[in-house]
């Protein structure tokens, strides 16, 4: 009931905010097109080897780009204050907010990226690995990023600071994600990487709501 309430609200707001909702996917397409043009001089095999890694990097970049929007609007119009005072399940509410942010800004890429990879000639197994790693990796990045966004919410220009805070925390995910995809490309075992990624996801699923609610309270103090 409450989950649906928050998610429908976020989706309604996103649908009214105009073309902004398409920004992640447009950025993603731009990066892929540029990548394709600039690698048209190298051999196809090398390009295909780089492609899944490139997709991973672009997903990570786009994820960083729209991080600070998670709580920004709520902070600006005062909804956040009321939410933090009144709500009995702050942590749960924050988790739902992060979920709807992920659904709106990351899930489209997670779906489109493997399709594009297929079109560009990547084999099915690697495409599947790419899809799975993105499906685990991007929510983890949203979770980590929302802690940084919550910490810096009261600063007027927090984009740079958020990016710097999340950078070291994103590196493990990037390493595991790209390593899994790369192993899959060369028909090697990648279950270790997947396990570690799942482990990171669950760790941050547990930590983030608590850390966010504390950070938001401190920022609003």
């Amino acid at each position: 009931m409450k989950i649906l309430n928050i998610i429908t609200k976020e989706f309604l707001l996103a649908s009214r905010s105009g073309y902004e909702i398409f920004m992640p996917i447009v950025y993603f397409l731009i990066i892929i097109i540029f990548f394709n043009i600039s690698t048209s001089y190298v051999e196809k095999v090398i390009m295909l080897e780089l492609l899944p890694l490139m997709i991973w990097i672009s997903c990570l970049l786009i994820c960083i780009l729209n991080l600070e929007t998670i709580f920004k609007e709520d902070y600006d119009d005062g909804t956040l204050e009321m939410f933090l005072i009144k709500d009995d399940e702050i942590e749960f509410g924050i988790l739902i907010k992060i979920l709807s942010h992920w659904l709106l800004s990351n899930l489209p890429i997670v779906i489109v990226a493997p399709l594009i990879a297929m079109v560009l000639g990547l084999d099915t197994t690697t495409t599947l690995t790419l899809f799975i790693t993105l499906l685990i990796g991007t929510p983890t990045m949203s979770l980590i990023g929302s802690i940084a966004a919550a910490l810096t919410i009261s600063l007027r220009k927090n984009k740079i600071l958020v990016s710097i805070i999340v950078l070291p925390l994103y590196i493990p995910i990037l390493i595991f994600g790209t390593s899994a995809v790369n192993n899959s490309f060369f028909k090697m075992n990648y279950s270790v990487e997947l396990t570690l990624m799942l482990f990171l996801f669950f760790i941050f699923l547990l930590i983030t709501p608590l850390a966010c609610s504390k950070a938001l309270k401190i920022s609003l103090d």
Binding site: L12, D77, G78, T79, M82
Partner: peptide
Amino acid sequence: IYIGHKYGTKGNL
């Protein structure tokens, strides 16, 4: 109910 300087209303709703 707390109503502060910021009204807590969503402009796009």
